[in-house]
Design a protein around this nucleic acid. Structure first.
Lengths: 151, 151
DNA sequence: CCCATTTATTTGTATATACAATCTAATTGG
DNA sequence: CCAATTAGATTGTATATACAAATAAATGGG
């Protein structure tokens, strides 16, 4: 019989938990990016989708989700809202199941407007977290395991 | 007249945006912590609140929000759900506006059960992000500006 | 002592998020 | 070619999140 390992104490969890810190930073940094987008009626969550779609020309939902590590149902709702605003449009496809979409001219114009504030946000967030932290975060993001990597 | 600085291109934003990377990592890491908590009907977001409350003995909502960089309205809804589950209870206070709360015995028991899985999640997330990244993230979290620091 | 202000919290509303279930179309085995 | 399976996406439901507005209690100035 191995002895049961001692459970972490509340103090240990409070002092070390990565999840709580990452989530805090995420809230603060998200706000830094959302702020200048507010007059445009855009948030950084949707801006990310616009950027990903712009890179792909024609975007299949599953592909965007794989790139952004987003649940497909989450994207579905977001695309719905963004189509309603005229930023995205569905592209016809032979496969009757597929719903590929692309940026509209409006969406592209919006993204251009959003780019101006982005640089300031990026600088502000980088100053807050530190250059080295940002670099390591970007590298870590590139290493995230993709959903179907073990199928 | 200073020349208008060139806007960042879509490629630049896609390649460098910190927000999209941080949000991706946040989704993946949150899932790592949520997974072992699922059988307990708990998520790491609420576990964070339990931990903060445990540290404080009696927690005032505004104080928890300051520590976790959470909007007060967000906490209000979370506490509501956690009271309904019997994990938190309100403590009477002379100030009629205040709604301080504390862990119940049930809440403490739940936190103990949750601690077992936490260590594995912490290890898994640390391996994913790298020790150095985690250390820098923790330091950055400690430096986040608090809401009323410029009032 | 009362009114204006400030403080602590909750409510209204909207987006973000994910899991489970469903729907529909393509594919594949027989 | 059809039945069973698989694949792509949406829908049902619940939590997480924040901004703005509302509520309500304390406080401070006259």
């Amino acid at each position: 019989m191995k002895p049961t390992p001692a459970l972490p104490t509340v103090d240990t969890i409070a002092a070390e938990c990565l999840a709580v810190r990452l989530r805090m930073i995420n809230r603060v940094v998200t706000n830094i990016y959302d702020e200048p987008l507010r007059p445009l009626g855009l948030k950084v969550s949707q801006m990310n989708i616009l950027v990903a779609a712009a890179k792909l020309k024609v975007a299949r939902p599953a592909e965007i989700c794989d790139r952004l590590h987003l649940d497909v149902s989450t994207l579905s709702r977001n695309v719905e809202r963004m189509k309603a605003r005229g930023w995205l449009e569905v592209v016809p496809d032979e496969d009757g199941r597929a719903q590929p979409f692309r940026l509209t001219a409006e969406g592209r114009k919006l993204l251009r407007k959003a780019s101006a504030g982005w640089r300031k946000s990026q600088e502000q967030a980088t100053k807050l977290l530190g250059k080295k932290t940002v670099q390591l975060l970007c590298e870590a993001a590139g290493r995230l395991p993709h959903a179907d990597s073990n199928r």
